[in-house]
């Protein structure tokens, strides 16, 4: 039975309805600071979007302002995660979903490459072991 069969429908406001709280613009300034720091010291940082009082409209506005970049990474790890570069290189829009596809957390990460994309040395070491095993089997 699909949920639509239950005669309860939540009325959600139509898209585009004014819902801007004014909390999004200051984030751009914050990001600019973080990018500067990244360039100067190499230190990466992140903003947890679910911890901020942002409405979906605010998020859409931010998303639109930051735009889409060249790289889009998809990670399949108990649910899909997307790590997309924005039109401002160094700024990544990171969305984690669970197995049901619901967003569990959302970040804007400021880094040359998002941490999650980088392979961990231990994992690389395991990979090397596997590779060597493969070579020895040749």
């Amino acid at each position: 039975m699909s949920l639509d069969a239950i005669p309860i429908h939540v009325i959600t406001p139509p898209a585009g309805e004014p819902g801007l709280t004014g909390n999004a613009p200051p984030l751009l300034r914050e990001l600019a600071e973080q990018v500067k720091r990244l360039l100067e010291t190499g230190e990466s940082s992140a903003i947890d979007l679910s911890a901020l009082p942002l409405t979906p409209t605010d998020l859409d506005w931010l998303h639109e302002k930051l735009g889409a970049g060249e790289i889009a990474v998809t990670l399949q790890a108990s649910g899909e995660s997307t790590l997309n570069e924005t039109a401002c290189p160094g700024i990544w829009w990171v969305t984690h979903r669970n197995e049901q596809g619901a967003v569990t957390s959302q970040f804007i990460e400021v880094a040359f490459v998002p941490e999650l994309v980088k392979a961990h040395p231990q994992d690389v070491a395991i990979g090397l072991e596997n590779l060597e095993l493969m070579i020895s089997d040749l």
């Binding site: 790890a77 999650l116 961990h120 231990q122 994992d123």
Partner: peptide
């Protein structure tokens, strides 16, 4: 995997 774990910790 490590990434799965990292993702969980972030959430």
């Amino acid at each position: 995997t490590r990434r799965t774990f990292l993702k969980y910790c972030a959430t």
